[in-house]
């Protein structure tokens, strides 16, 4: 017993997460969903029907699938936390590691690792899809569209940002799960938070308020980092947008931790 309890808890939580049957499927669904959308989008674009001038943001379009497929990783994160309550595994867990902080840190750490790994896979897959499909549709260097490459600063920022985005929404889901302890409640809250705001923004007719919603809604702000063109038209800076999302995730996690510390494991 030389390892510090936090690391030990991380390993235990990783084992639990790994052996939960839904984990693999949901992570796979997230990656496959994003890459599938990337294939569909890049396959349907056509340089001949664009512009002139053609101002498509190919990086953003290639990575757009994460908007939809993030559902998988959010469900995974919520379930990883709330399933312990519904199956009462939480009681033996807390008996094995009576100090609660390491337990929950281990769980969040394991989820963060899983989330960013999933993010890295889906970014790699989407970019590969873009590289495979786009040149065939006329998006070649001769037309001003060099192949998507991580050597390009903006594309690299979008790729790294999307990986971080996936990790952050995972933590957001886990935080809400800790806070509400209930699958239905946490999942509804997470989905409403992510998908509700773009819909509300459509209704609001005041441009100032539309701008504010796009700035401070977790999904819209967080995915600003995918933009590689026409950055002035975005509502918030790329890293500032990811910062907004981290604030949401941090708030959910901190509130979840506080509640977890104080509450009985029911």
């Amino acid at each position: 017993m030389t390892a510090p309890p936090a690391l030990w808890a991380l390993r235990a939580e990783w084992t639990k997460l790994r052996t939960l049957p839904s984990t693999g499927w949901l992570a796979l669904l997230t990656v496959a969903g994003t890459v599938g959308v990337a294939f569909a989008v890049t396959g349907s674009l056509d340089f001949a029907h664009c512009g002139p001038p053609c101002t498509l943001d190919l990086t953003k379009l290639t990575l757009a699938g994460v908007r939809l497929a993030q559902v998988g990783i959010v469900v995974l994160a919520v379930l990883a936390v709330t399933a312990e309550y519904s199956t009462r595994t939480i009681q033996p867990t807390l008996m094995a590691v009576p100090r609660r902080f390491p337990v929950v840190l281990g769980k969040l750490g394991a989820l963060a690792v899983l989330g960013t790994t999933t993010g890295a896979l889906l970014v790699a897959g989407s970019l590969a899809a873009g590289r495979a499909m786009l040149p065939g549709n006329g998006f070649t260097a001769a037309h001003g569209f060099p192949a998507l490459s991580l050597a390009d600063d903006l594309t690299r920022r979008a790729a790294v940002g999307t990986v971080l985005y996936t990790g952050l929404v995972t933590l957001l889901g886990a935080g809400l799960g800790l806070l509400l302890r209930d699958t239905a409640g946490a999942l509804t809250a997470a989905l409403a938070l992510l998908y509700g705001s773009p819909v509300v923004a459509m209704f609001v007719t005041d441009p100032t308020w539309q701008h504010r919603i796009h700035r401070f809604a977790p999904m819209d702000a967080g995915l600003t980092i995918q933009a590689t063109r026409d950055l002035a038209a975005e509502h918030i800076g790329p890293w500032a947008g990811l910062g907004v999302l981290s604030l949401y995730a941090a708030a959910a996690v901190v509130a979840g931790l506080l509640v977890f510390q104080r509450r009985d494991a029911g």
Binding site: R67, L68, V71, V75, V78, L79, T183, A184, L187, T188, L191, A192, Y195, G196, P198, V199, M202
Partner: peptide, 21 residues
């Protein structure tokens, strides 16, 4: 399955809205 059912129903409403936009 609670999580699956909620996710699918929410997506049935919001997915087409976001794609349609």
């Amino acid at each position: 399955h609670t999580a699956a059912a909620i996710t699918i129903t929410v997506l049935l409403v919001l997915g087409p809205l976001i794609v349609g936009m």
